[in-house]
Design a binder for these strands. Structure first.
Lengths: 355, 355
DNA sequence: TTTTCTTGTGAGACCGGTCTCAATTGCCAA
DNA sequence: TTGGCAATTGAGACCGGTCTCACAAGAAAA
């Protein structure tokens, strides 16, 4: 491979020579450490300016061991949930003069492992991860730098974690549906599950998904709805068959009269599918979704949502991580942020008609 | 500042000692260069595994001069336009084993300068920038590594650039409005302009904004609409007063009968303002926006949009940059991707009523 | 005036890799 | 048997910073 002509960069030694001082002294001025007399200080700065010196952060990191950047591994930046969270992270990072190296896992564990390996090799000072699966976390356990988890908790991993009260949120949202008289309620998530769900919570990949399902089931149980487990639909992500599966669900004889969607991407897809099937919200079917995405307030009808403090989620997890980088050694925190339900017009009342 | 206890990482020398070979030989195996006999090769790998050796990418970059990462400076990741473009960039980068360091400029030149300085110090191999202003580009000119521009061209900067046919797109969209009989057409953009617009295109900050305005004016001129310059509204970003300004615009006596919006964030805000003013699309007012954001197809009515190939925009600019990193020294390319107009239901016909 | 600090400066090791160059070895041809 | 050549290996310089340590000079204390 041909090497690019490698610009001969100006180094500390060059500046030192120009300023007629030793390399050590020039480095002190340029690196902002140690003590230097004001005269020499000025001379070095002048020489640096004359030569257009630019520090090589890599070389600096080499000796200090600190790189001044943190790695962030999320499922999919394209998802508004993550892009907002990343915004929160990078705002917090910038305040501390730290920058962010971003990696997409595409919700795939292998990609996640590889991303983490690369980021570690780049000597990031810390990592923020949204683990794709809670079953496969060996690679997370052996991370050598401070780690913080975003949106998804891992009981076995005692590290700083920021999540939202998923179970309670799902409970309240589902209860809103049962109290409106709904009994055939579906929970639709993008997450994958190997095989069918039969109360085997342990097989659910991520805590967020598991908690929400538990909340959903709590509310169903509370309302005396049997077999609610069968109404949980996995794999409604961006895959090809997902939309078709939704349509099948909506066209089936015992189609749900209400749906709770796990994120705004799924909900948008559902919204479209509902319309394509000629159904009307909330007359034929009610819809609530997680995440107050921008579009949910402008549809007809506007969608009732579970508003998660996404920006704060990112901001707090970054702050937690940065605090730890600065040497804080308090035991790890697990912050659970509250959600609120924004009631709009997508939930309709349902008479007591049997199934 | 207290230093974190600095994990004593395993180095090439450690592995060499373990494998009873020289540091140079171990480095050859671990770094994958030079020639090593198969026996020694295996021995080194085994030692590396036993010691759980992990390469220090920083040290490697130190000597090679290559860091294996590119920097990306965008206006705002939260804007779906940029998050989709970033997705395109990072997908392309991953294919080449390159990773992405992300920085937000918040459309502020100073922040942009600072971000570029930091990224350069981190020795990124290349930079992708969405320049916030075309007036202040000295900092871009003195970038030492390959640079590529995303979405916004700079005539004075002869570097790889990928944009869309903004002028033509604005022309076609505006023409669609004039042909529907509209004569009071507003162009609303988030971009800022110091003072009012009076044909002084040179004062417009970014090429994208300028091109679109020129296209808009072309169409107005073509339709014999005088003084269209006065219908260009700047500064409709996320600022506090923006929404109120929109409402004033919509409530004024000579309010426009049609609006062209510069991006989906502005359009969404307009959509809300229009509804709040009790106006109906397309009966009272027509709306077309740049960027086929997800929500535009689910509103009532769905919005006619100028569909930009955003993902491809990011992907191509990354590919261009990476090609250059690999030593390609063809003259810089300026790729202009075509847009298409997706006609939905937000454009209404207007009788020939005078102003 | 001598001793003890303090302060500023320079010399050089070091971080963890890459890479050049010379030395050693084995193999084949002359 | 000896020379030549290729393949493999080791020693050590180097990248561009940081940081330790020693030393010099002036200030403060004895």
């Amino acid at each position: 491979m041909k090497r690019p002509p490698k610009a001969p960069s100006v180094t500390v030694s060059d500046v030192a020579r120009e300023a007629k001082v030793s390399k050590a002294t020039a480095a002190r001025v340029l690196g902002g450490y140690g003590r230097v007399s004001t005269t020499v200080h000025a001379a070095v700065l002048e020489a640096a300016k004359a030569l257009d010196y630019r520090p090589n952060e890599l070389a600096r990191s080499m000796t200090t061991g600190r790189s001044g950047s943190i790695g962030v591994v999320v499922g999919d930046i394209e998802n508004p949930f993550f892009s907002l969270a990343v915004r929160g992270i990078s705002d917090a990072a910038r305040l501390s003069g730290i920058n962010v190296i971003l990696a997409n896992s595409g919700e795939d564990v292998e990609a996640e492992k590889s991303a983490i390996r690369v980021l570690m090799a780049k000597q990031v000072d810390g990592l923020i991860v949204t683990p794709a699966q809670s079953g496969d976390i060996a690679h997370l356990k052996e991370i050598a730098c401070p780690l913080a988890l975003l949106d998804r908790a891992l009981p076995e991993l005692n590290v700083d974690t920021v999540t939202v009260d998923d179970r309670n949120a799902a409970l309240r949202a589902t209860r809103m549906l049962t109290q409106a008289g709904h009994r055939r309620i579906a929970y639709v998530t993008a997450a994958l599950l190997s095989g069918d769900f039969r109360g085997a919570e342990s097989r659910i990949n991520t805590s967020t998904v598991r908690e929400r399902i538990l909340g959903f089931l709590d509310a169903c149980r509370e309302a005396g709805i049997p077999g609610a487990e069968r109404n949980i639909h996995f794999g409604s992500g961006r895959s090809d068959g997902a939309h078709a599966a939704m349509q099948r669900l909506l066209e089936s004889a015992d189609r749900p009269t209400a749906i709770l969607a796990s994120d705004s991407v799924v909900a948008l897809d559902l919204f479209k599918a509902i319309r394509e099937c000629g159904l009307a919200i909330p007359r034929d079917i009610s819809l609530i979704t997680f995440h107050d995405a921008d579009w949910t307030s402008v549809t007809t009808p506007p969608i009732t949502v579970i508003d998660q403090p996404v920006y704060a989620l990112g901001k707090s997890v970054a702050e937690l991580l940065i605090r730890r980088l600065k040497g804080d050694d308090r035991p790890p925190e697990r912050i659970v942020l509250p959600t609120t339900i924004i009631e709009r017009m997508s939930v309709g009342h349902r008479g007591d008609a049997g199934p």
